[in-house]
Amino acid sequence: MASDNSFDVVSKVEIQEVKNAIDQASKEIHTRFDLKDSKSKIELEGSESIQLASASEHTLKAVIEILSQKLVKRGVSLKNLEYEKIEPAANSSVRQKVKLVQGIPSEKAKQIVALVKESKKKAQASIQGDTVRIVSKDRDTLQEIMGMLRAKDFGVALQFTNYRSN
């Protein structure tokens, strides 16, 4: 009997890389001439969100740009960030919360499963919590499915983990 091969499709944010990017962005904000007295701050709140604060919306946008550059350099996809609306804070300053999206949302997982079924390849896809497991007897089929998933944009960054060939 032929054995099954499988891999998991996940969407994770590496928290340590986010911390490093925040540290680098904070250093740049405190040394940049145009942002020196803007009272801008970037703080990581647990492992779910980042709190941004600044003197005005204009400087907040500059802070977001700096943070985005640092995150990309550290290999964190910007697709896993969900920006909430800008809200006023004390002393006419503004703040914004940025959620870190962990896991594949159920509607995106359903789209992935549907795409695998529509491809007519000999593979099964199943949703397991916030991951999708793809199983097939043929390794080449799994490689083709990985390529197909990379080519399509689901709105979240996808990683392929737990590759098993028995």
Rank of each mutant, 00 (worst) to 15 (best):
S3T: 07
V10I: 10
S11F: 06
E17W: 00
V18N: 04
N20F: 01
Q24M: 06
A25P: 04
S26T: 09
F33I: 04
D34C: 01
I42C: 08
E43T: 07
G46W: 03
E48L: 09
I50Q: 08
S56G: 08
I64A: 10
I66V: 15
I66Y: 05
L67Q: 01
S68W: 01
K73F: 08
S77W: 05
S77E: 06
L78E: 08
N80V: 02
L81V: 02
E84A: 13
E87G: 03
E87K: 15
A89C: 04
S93N: 12
V94S: 11
Q96W: 03
V98M: 11
S106A: 09
S106E: 14
E107C: 01
V113H: 09
A114Q: 15
A123H: 11
A123S: 13
I127S: 11
I127W: 09
G129Y: 09
I134A: 12
V135K: 15
K137V: 04
D138A: 12
T141K: 03
E144G: 06
M146F: 03
G155N: 14
V156A: 06
L158F: 07
Q159V: 06
T161N: 14
T161Q: 14
Y163S: 13
Y163K: 09
R164A: 13
R164Q: 14
S165E: 15
S165H: 12
